Amino acid sequence: ELVLALYDYQEKSPREVTMKKGDILTLLNSTNKDWWKVEVNDRQGFVPASYVKKLD
């Protein structure tokens, strides 16, 4: 499943990933309501769920 980055996000820990507004990311896990695991540029990590939106 793919998600769209709604905002820029700068990683604050090694478990997170940086994304730019408009990026298309692969959603790996959305079981946590606050932090979703995504893959971007061959890196996996977490981003705030409120910063991304699922693409239909």
Results as ranks from 00 to 15, higher is better:
Ala49Glu: 04
Pro14Met: 09
Asp23Met: 14
Val52Glu: 01
Gln10Cys: 10
Ser30Trp: 09
Val47Trp: 00
Ala49Gly: 04
Leu28Ala: 03
Trp36Lys: 01
Ala49Trp: 02
Asp23Trp: 12
Asp23Thr: 09
Val52Ile: 09
Asn32Cys: 09
Asn29Ile: 08
Ile24Lys: 06
Asn32Pro: 05
Leu6Val: 08
Arg15Asn: 15
Val52Leu: 15
Val47Tyr: 01
Asp34Tyr: 15
Leu27Ser: 02
Val3Phe: 08
Met19Phe: 10
Tyr7Lys: 14
Ala5Asn: 00
Asn32His: 12
Leu27Thr: 01
Leu4Thr: 08
Tyr51Leu: 12
Asn32Ile: 06
Lys12Ser: 12
Thr31Val: 10
Tyr7Glu: 10
Tyr51Phe: 13
Thr26Cys: 10
Asn32Glu: 11
Tyr9Val: 00
Leu25Cys: 10
Asn41Val: 11
Leu2Gln: 11
Lys54His: 09
Ile24Tyr: 07
Glu39Arg: 12
Leu4Trp: 07
Asp42Gly: 15
Trp35Pro: 01
Gly22Arg: 02
Tyr7Asn: 09
Pro48Ser: 02
Glu11Phe: 06
Lys20Trp: 10
Ala5Gln: 01
Asp8Tyr: 04
Leu2Ile: 10
Val52Asp: 02
Asp42Trp: 07
Gln44Phe: 07
Ser50Trp: 10
Tyr7Trp: 11
Ser30Tyr: 07
Val3Gln: 02
Glu16Gly: 12
Lys20Val: 10
Asn41Gly: 15
Arg43Ser: 07
Pro48His: 04
Phe46His: 05
Asn41Phe: 13
Thr31Ile: 09
Thr18Cys: 06
Arg15Val: 10
Trp35Asp: 01
Val52Trp: 02
Leu27Ala: 02
Thr26Met: 13
Val47Met: 01
Asp42Val: 07
Asp23Arg: 02
Gly22Phe: 05
Asp56Phe: 11
Asp56Thr: 13
Ala5Tyr: 00
Val3Lys: 00
Lys53Ala: 13
Lys21Leu: 04
Lys53Ile: 15
Leu27Trp: 01
Asn29Asp: 15
Lys20Gln: 11
Tyr7Thr: 07
Leu28Met: 08
Lys54Ala: 08
Gly22Cys: 08
Lys53Trp: 10
Leu25Asn: 00
Leu28Asp: 00
Glu1Val: 14
Arg15Lys: 12
Glu1Pro: 12
Leu6Pro: 01
Val52Phe: 05
Asp34Ala: 11
Leu4Tyr: 11
Ser13Ile: 04
Val52Gln: 00
Gly22Glu: 03
Val17Ile: 15
Lys37Phe: 15
Ser50Phe: 09
Tyr51Met: 12
Leu6Gln: 05
Lys54Met: 12
Gln10Tyr: 15
Asp34Val: 14
